[in-house]
């Protein structure tokens, strides 16, 4: 079985996000990137599948230079192959363009399963996974928390989350694209020395193509949420705050 995992670099929200002078994008110099959380879970799920079946996992990392680091981490965690897909910052978050761009690379790899996060933090159009599935003519289901592949390798049974803690159990014909919500186990840890070893020794294939021009959605204005709807902030040290809070709760008959 061949599994591809798509890892995207998205703005790290631990660092303050600064809006650029054009009022429509993020200031490049201030940005730091992190692998999209859902994609990390997709990688974990792929590695879990690898531990259960004879599978090879290809990490497909999309972004700028920092996407190389994500590949090293993936290889350190157990991915077998590394494919780098460079795209300019301006095209991040344009999943229509990205899906069309990635499709030939995925097709030529002959994968049975393509996993990625169901959602990306900087996503403005439709999710990458669903769009990619159309480009590949594969079926797609997302929002998954578990994936099991039948021994014959032509079907997968998946758990899809619904509101209210319900789970839908579904069967999907392979090859397929799956959108992972969270992996079955907490993410594994790759030590720094394993990552640096991977950086030195991994063979990174680079995918080059021309980004298709897709008429998508245009951001006309990017803003920080207004402060107008802000909570009433309680002042003072922890003891003062606790006191005020208990008074508020008591006034409302909650204690």
């Amino acid at each position: 079985m061949k599994i591809a995992v798509i890892l995207r670099q998205v703005p790290d929200v631990v660092q303050e996000l600064v809006i650029a002078a054009d009022g429509r994008s993020l200031a490049k110099d201030e940005l730091t990137y992190i692998t999209n959380e859902g994609d990390e879970h997709a990688l974990e799920e792929a590695l879990i599948l690898k531990s259960r079946h004879a599978a090879t996992v290809t990490a497909v990392s999309v972004g700028g230079d920092e996407a190389r680091d994500a590949l090293a981490t993936a290889v350190a965690k157990g991915a077998d192959e590394a494919l780098l897909v460079s795209i300019p910052l301006e095209r991040r978050g344009d999943n229509h363009g990205l899906a069309a761009y990635l499709a030939p690379a995925i097709t030529s790899g002959g994968y049975d399963l393509v996993l990625t996060g169901v959602w990306a933090a900087d996503q403005l159009d439709a999710g990458l996974a669903g769009l990619l599935a159309v480009q590949l003519s594969f079926p797609y289901v997302g929002g998954l928390t578990a994936v099991a592949v039948e021994p014959a390798g032509n079907r997968a049974t998946v758990h899809k989350e619904f509101p209210g803690g319900r789970l839908g159990v579904m069967e999907v014909s392979l090859p397929a694209v799956l959108g992972i919500q969270s992996a079955e186990q907490p993410l594994r840890y790759a030590s720094v020395s394993k990552i640096s070893q991977a950086k030195r020794t991994m063979q990174v294939k680079e995918f080059r193509g021309s980004l298709p021009n897709v008429e998508g959605v245009h951001v006309s204005r990017l803003t920080k949420p207004e402060a107008s709807a802000k909570a009433d902030m309680l002042q003072g040290d922890a003891s003062r705050v606790a006191e005020t809070l208990v008074r508020i709760l008591r006034e409302r008959g909650l204690v």
Partner: peptide, 13 residues
Amino acid sequence: LCGGKLLARTDVG
């Protein structure tokens, strides 16, 4: 966007 830290206004055709 970005965990609610940004609001994007968009227009379509």
